[in-house]
Write a protein that binds this DNA or RNA. Structure first.
Lengths: 144, 144
DNA sequence: CTAACACCTACAGTGGCTGTAGCTTCAAGC
DNA sequence: GCTTGAAGCTACAGCCACTGTAGGTGTTAG
């Protein structure tokens, strides 16, 4: 017996909005499902699994393009998984560099806030630091 | 003697693109400068300082709306700087929660990659983990 | 004088959704 | 069978912070 799901059930299973699912279909990440007589989408377990895959990958920060690639590789089960590994490693590097950037922001923000004595804007150290890059500890920040 | 700058000079001083400066003007973050006979923008030191402020704040991750607020507060030098402090603290919290989310991603990505033996997609642990949320250490990820 | 470059406006595109307007369909209760 | 409210449908606009493009004009060095 085959289970079927409405788009609303898919959305709650995938912890996303109905529009998100329609969007994934529109950009070709989710295959078009069958339609009911009244033109409503009818999903199968396969669709549900694929959505789960996409949502979990998104939670881990993969881009939709990366997910598209991995899904394509996944369709050939005998393919070497070196490419999947490659994508994941590249993403890990991205995540690590984002962490570094944010940590350097955090450091500078903390320093700035601690110097502020909460009096007048005129002598506000936060504004002074923002005005004058040279007041930063790090002479340059990692790019945006 | 008053120094003047072309938009190109502003862009290199602010390490941004010419379009970015026009965009800041369009959304009212940079005041409209005077124009030359040939309709080209002529900037003063004030503009340059303000752009510097914006760019430095952006490097520290403030949103354009936050920057707009801080600039408005800055215009009243006798104003208490408590509100500036407030904005900065809120932003610091945001940065810290982003760091947490990324660190949890990093952990899971590393675990996933280490389990992968680089053979076939069929038995790829990366794909398995992405398919099945339950294979994650963290039962749930911090939201997107 | 010409070539190369900087500048101008106006608008479209990026990623990953999210929201809205104005409909139709479905399921439950009477 | 009828009504009502939720859920579904399409099509399109909007978010952020830019970035890129097309097609023109202004400026400057040789």
């Amino acid at each position: 017996m085959v289970r079927h799901y409405s788009i609303g059930q898919m959305a709650s299973a995938g912890s996303c909005k109905v529009q998100t699912i329609r969007y994934y279909e529109q950009i070709g990440l989710l295959p078009m499902p069958a339609r009911s007589e009244g033109n409503q989408r009818i999903y199968t377990q396969d669709h549900r699994d694929r959505l789960g895959f996409i949502r979990h990958s998104r939670e881990l920060g993969f881009s939709l393009e990366q997910i598209r690639e991995i899904l394509a590789l996944n369709d050939d089960p005998c393919h070497s998984c070196a490419e999947v590994d490659q994508i994941a490693r590249k993403h890990l590097q991205e995540v690590e560099s984002r962490i570094k950037r944010l940590q350097s922001m955090r450091k500078e923000l903390k320093r700035m806030i601690n110097q502020c004595d909460g009096k007048q804007v005129r002598e506000c150290r936060i504004i002074q630091t923002l005005s004058n890059h040279a007041l930063c500890l790090a002479s340059q920040h990692p790019g945006l």
